[in-house]
Each structure stands twice: as structure tokens, then as C-alpha cells.
Simulated scan of single mutants.
Amino acid sequence: MFKQFLDQATGNNGYLLTSLGIFMLFFIMVAVLLFTMKKDEVKYMSELPLKDDVK
């Protein structure tokens, strides 16, 4: 199925590679942010839905 799609998309390889690059860059950036996040911040965010502090 994908091979047929790629065969029919002649001349559009730039669009395919660009969209794949943007997709990969986004998820790599999210992974880096998650791994560099402080543990206190993760704990604070995980407890937010459970708090009843209404101001």
C-alpha cells in the first residue's frame, strides 16, 4: 500500500521528507523536554487534577 502511494507521488518527495522531518523533530523535542524536566515540577503537575484549590 505504501509503495503504491510513494510510486504515485513522483515529484513530491520533498513534501514527504519535510513532513516526516517536522514530525520527528516535534517528538524529539518533546522527549528532550520530558527527560530534562525537574522531578518537583513533574510531581506538581501530576497532582494538579487532584487539588480542589479554587480561587
Rank of each mutant, 00 (worst) to 15 (best):
F5M: 14
S19K: 12
L17A: 14
S19W: 07
V32K: 02
E47A: 09
S19A: 13
Q4W: 10
L34F: 07
K38G: 08
G11W: 07
D7V: 01
F5P: 09
A9N: 15
T36A: 02
D53Q: 15
T18G: 14
K3M: 07
K51Y: 08
F35H: 00
I28G: 00
L17I: 11
D53K: 15
K55C: 03
K43P: 02
A9C: 12
M37C: 10
G11A: 06
K3H: 09
K43G: 02
L50D: 08
A31P: 00
N12Y: 14
F2Y: 13
D52F: 08
N13Q: 15
K55Q: 13
Q8V: 12
M24V: 13
F27K: 00
D53S: 07
D53V: 11
M29L: 05
K3Y: 07
F5A: 14
V54D: 04
I22K: 08
D52Y: 05
T10E: 14
L17Q: 11
L20T: 09
L48F: 10
E41K: 05
A9V: 12
K38S: 09
L16C: 11
N12C: 08
L48P: 09
L16E: 05
N13D: 12
P49G: 04
S46P: 00
K39E: 09
N12D: 07
S46E: 04
S19F: 14
E41F: 05
D7C: 02
G14S: 14
D52H: 05
D7K: 05
K43R: 06
Q8T: 13
L20Q: 11
G14L: 15
T36V: 11
N12E: 14
G11D: 06
M45H: 11
F23Y: 13
F27G: 00
F26C: 03
F23M: 07
Q8K: 14
K43V: 15
K55H: 12
K3E: 13
Q8M: 12
G14Y: 15
T18D: 12
N12K: 15
V32N: 01
L20P: 06
I28T: 05
L17N: 11
M29D: 01
T18Q: 14
D7S: 02
E47H: 07
M1R: 11
S46D: 01
M24I: 15
K38T: 08
V54Q: 01
E47G: 03
D53G: 06
K38D: 10
K55S: 10
P49N: 03
L33G: 08
L17D: 06
K43W: 05
K51L: 13
F35M: 03
D52S: 07
Y15P: 02
Q8G: 12
L20E: 05
L34Y: 01
V32W: 02
L17H: 12
S19C: 10
Q4E: 11
V32A: 07
K43Q: 06
F23P: 05
L50I: 00
G14N: 15
T36P: 02
I22N: 04
V42W: 07
L34P: 00
N12F: 13
K38Q: 05
F27N: 00
V30K: 03
D40H: 06
L6N: 11
L50T: 03
M24A: 10
T36R: 04
K55E: 15
Y15G: 10
V32L: 06
V54I: 02
K43Y: 06
K55Y: 06
V54G: 01
G21S: 10
S19L: 11
